[in-house]
Amino acid sequence: MKKRNYNLLLGGIITGIMMVLTLTGFFYTPFDPEKMDAANKLSGISLTHIMGCDNFGRDIFSRVLKGCGTTFTVACGTVLIGTVFGTLIGAFTGYFGGLVDEVLMRIMDALFAFPSLLLALVFVSLFGSGKYHVIIALGIAFVPSFSRIVRGEYMRCRELDYVKSARLSGASHLRIMFVHILPNIFTVLLSSVMIGFNNAVLAEAGLTYLGIGVRPPDASLGEMLSSAQTYLFSAPWYALCTGGTMILMILGFSLMSEGLKKS
């Protein structure tokens, strides 16, 4: 009997639900996420406000929906930049080796030596904050780790017989790199993309928490979590709901990448 892959299943379900919520957030929220309502200031969980209201009387659920969208966009953009450039650099260095490898990997090492958050911090303080700057900053900070993984895979693959036989069949180096080898490292790439996504969610939250990431009125999970901190005792549901949403988002992706590794 085939063993069920519960990690993949559960991860898929959680991620699926989060996706639906995120997508809904782009088009519809039960309340205007920006609308302040002094009467409902920090009101608790009720049927109308299912996650309660924040310190300005804004509906937390609506803001969570909107914030998921922002966080998701930032994480996706970050991972996209990291993957594309990481794969390119990793493919070239790993496949060719030699001087190209030495030079590019030393640059990556230098980049890697800084914590990604610090790197993003420097970037944001140089070019200003806001959603798109955060994406670029985090994206660049994510390139080294992706390029490392991809480089290792290419170094392993270039010695394999099918690469040699592709060479004999007249395939160019570029064709070997991206048509012959790339599909074979897809699973490795996919699971590192998912881990990268999680790290990006956390990094975005971290940056915003420090007040240099996504700026209000753009709602993001990190920004909400940081303002919820002040009301941790008077309105615990605020922090719980936003934090819980973030945990679910990350959990879904981690379970899925865990499941993919197994299958």
């Binding site: 040699k164 036989s165 592709a166 004999l168 069949s169 064709r175 074979n184 897809f186």
Partner: peptide, 29 residues
């Protein structure tokens, strides 16, 4: 274009390519 057959038939065929495409590679390239 001298050709070669490798020892290990498990390593010398690209696992992510269909047989037809593997055969067509030299004709294409």
């Amino acid at each position: 274009h001298p050709q070669m057959i490798f020892q290990d038939p498990y390593g010398s065929l690209n696992p992510s390519m269909k047989i037809g495409n593997i055969l067509q590679e030299p004709l294409r390239n």
